[in-house]
Amino acid sequence: MDYNIFDEWPTEAEFAKANGLTKRQVARMRSRKDGLPFAKRGKEIIIHVPTAREWLKKRLITPNPSREGRA
């Protein structure tokens, strides 16, 4: 079985395009204090999709219930 270890590691440009983002938006996500995890392959930025998915899940915002919805 041939398995390419980089199948889950698109470049920053590929990741941006696949998710409807610009490279600049992805760069901003990476540059934050607790930013999007990434690695480098040479000079190229690559992003591990499963890790990015978990990173995003940790940032889910659950709004407080409105006063009307409280018991």
Rank of each mutant, 00 (worst) to 15 (best):
T22A: 08
T22N: 12
T22W: 06
T22R: 14
T22C: 14
K23I: 11
K23D: 10
V26A: 05
V26G: 07
A27M: 09
A27R: 15
R28D: 10
R28S: 03
R28Y: 05
M29C: 07
M29T: 00
M29P: 07
R30G: 02
R30W: 00
R32F: 02
R32H: 01
R32T: 01
K33F: 12
K33D: 10
D34S: 13
D34F: 00
D34T: 00
D34M: 07
G35N: 13
G35Q: 12
G35D: 10
L36Q: 09
L36S: 12
L36H: 04
L36T: 05
P37N: 12
F38D: 00
F38K: 04
F38A: 06
F38Y: 14
A39R: 11
A39K: 15
K40I: 07
K40S: 04
K40Q: 11
R41P: 03
R41I: 09
K43P: 04
E44P: 03
E44K: 14
E44A: 13
I45C: 14
I46R: 12
I47K: 02
I47V: 07
H48W: 02
H48I: 05
V49D: 03
V49P: 07
P50V: 05
P50S: 04
T51V: 11
T51F: 01
T51N: 09
T51K: 13
T51I: 04
T51R: 07
A52K: 06
A52N: 08
A52D: 08
A52Q: 02
